[in-house]
Simulated assay, not measured.
Amino acid sequence: MSTWSLPRPMLAVPVADPALPPDWAAEPKWDGYRSLIGRWADGRVVVGSRTGGDLTAAFPDIAAAAVRRLPGDIVLDGELVVWENGRLAFERLQQRAHRTAVSAARAAQQWPAHFVAFDLLRQGDDDLTARPYRSRRKALERLFADRDLQPPWTLCPSTTDPREATGWLQWSAAGMEGLVFKRLDQRYVPNGRGWLKYRMRHTTEAVIGAVSCTTSAPVTALLGRFDSDGRLRYAGRTTVLSAPARRALAAGLRHAESGHPWTGRTFSVAWGSRERLTVRLVEPDVVVEVAVDVSLEPSGRWRHPVRLLRVRTDMAPTDVPLFGRPQ
């Protein structure tokens, strides 16, 4: 029996420029769960999370596919994704991540996962992490060809052509988040931040429905958009506001009168947290311009915190795009 274990994944640092640097390769940035999959020679399979957790029981479909199709003593790095209605559905991954046994099996049938492989770290007795990216990539491509790997296995695209990489940014409608850049001669450093990542962002508008802390000194803003029936729906929360933004909001916010659509609603401090955020409801008549990325949950909310850019005194709430639309 092999004694090796799954390493921690190599990480990336954010960059603001989507241009592919010379002597680097680009890959699409997927809206999923970063995962390492290991299959031992004795048949044992582990689906590991970015933080070292064990997701094997939550994704029995992927574990079973590893037993059927992968050779022994192998480690793949990649992304777990779920497709729904033609786009990546991160919310379905969240719903699957903490299930076990019968519940996990039902979820696998309802929302089958795919594994997008973008690196090969071990093959047989060979530890490939010391090899350059270009060498590991060739080995990964040979693995897919030799084993004729089909869904749920997907080979992540890779290119050194800047035009092709730029073209992948058009996939945002399917939930693609951006690009990851990897130097061709770079070794794989577990838990090291040697890659680069560019996340697509755009500016749009939203209405402020509440703020954390107080209206005179707001810390974050809770954003809403009206749906087609005229109901104010919660769309997301900003990062911590800058001092100028706090002053600008404090001058325009009005405490909510009775009948606010979010009356009685609670908001958590962070996703997955049971701690409740202290908020103050305000009249939904202040429009702000925000910078957001393309990760939109199936519920219609922005999945990541957004950055408030400025107050739009020239716009009315009815000018804001409807709930569930990125623009």
Rank of each mutant, 00 (worst) to 15 (best):
E283K: 13
A251F: 01
W302H: 10
A130R: 15
R50E: 05
D185A: 14
W153C: 14
M200E: 15
D17I: 03
T160K: 08
L322H: 13
T160D: 09
S158Y: 07
Q170C: 12
F181M: 04
Q170R: 15
T215V: 15
A58T: 11
P244T: 08
R50K: 10
M1Y: 03
W40A: 10
R187G: 14
G175H: 04
F115Y: 15
E257K: 13
D229L: 14
L222E: 02
V81G: 04
L322K: 13
E283D: 13
P14S: 13
R39I: 01
M1V: 01
V320T: 10
R254P: 02
A107P: 02
F226Y: 14
R303T: 05
F144V: 04
G224L: 03
S299M: 13
F90L: 12
L93W: 09
T263V: 09
P157H: 14
G72P: 01
I37E: 06
W171N: 15
V116Y: 11
P22I: 12
P112G: 09
P60S: 07
A245L: 14
H304K: 10
R301K: 14
A104L: 03
F226A: 07
G178Y: 04
A235G: 00
V219F: 08
R92N: 13
E283F: 06
V207T: 10
L143W: 00
S35R: 06
L309F: 10
D314S: 00
